[in-house]
């Protein structure tokens, strides 16, 4: 499952999408918007066709590199409030070491190469200009 969506992410559905009988470990990562006095939400912008292509390629690389059996990544676009999950990544492997390693590597890659950008939306941020870029 590779998706970019406005709607809240159904975590159970993401986990179910990687479950299989020969997988002894499933690692799930949730990237959540954390509270900060200046942040009420994060606004995500995406170059969707390239992001979907990049995500698909990095899942294939994770399978080759770590022996992951299945991997799903769902990222939100638009506004995600504090406490909301902006990305969910689930990885299934035969054993936990491969599942943890593949999950950590893939999430680093998501932040490094997938064309998604976020800006902070705070209490004093006008809707027309929703704040500085977040690294």
């Amino acid at each position: 499952m590779i998706e970019i969506q406005r709607a809240r992410i159904d975590i159970k559905a993401v986990v179910s999408s990687v479950r299989r009988d020969d997988a002894g470990a499933i690692v799930v990562f949730l990237g959540s918007v954390r509270s900060d006095p200046e942040v009420q939400a994060l606004d995500y912008e995406v170059y969707k066709p390239m992001a979907l292509r990049t995500l698909t390629e990095l899942v294939e690389r994770a399978k080759e590199k770590f022996g992951a059996l299945e991997m799903s990544i769902v990222h939100r676009v638009g506004r995600v409030p504090v406490g909301g999950d902006s990305v969910v990544l689930a990885c299934a492997a035969a054993h936990r070491s491969e599942a943890f390693a593949a999950c950590a590597w893939a999430m680093d890659e998501v932040k490094r190469i997938v064309p998604i950008w976020k800006t902070e939306a705070g209490p004093r941020t006008p809707r027309s200009r929703r704040g500085r870029k977040v690294p």
């Binding site: 954390r34 902006s86 998501v110 932040k111 997938v114 064309p115 950008w117 870029k133 977040v134």
Partner: peptide, 9 residues
């Protein structure tokens, strides 16, 4: 033309 990306939370 892509600025440095910043996906994730």
């Amino acid at each position: 033309l892509l600025p440095p990306v910043s996906g994730g939370a």
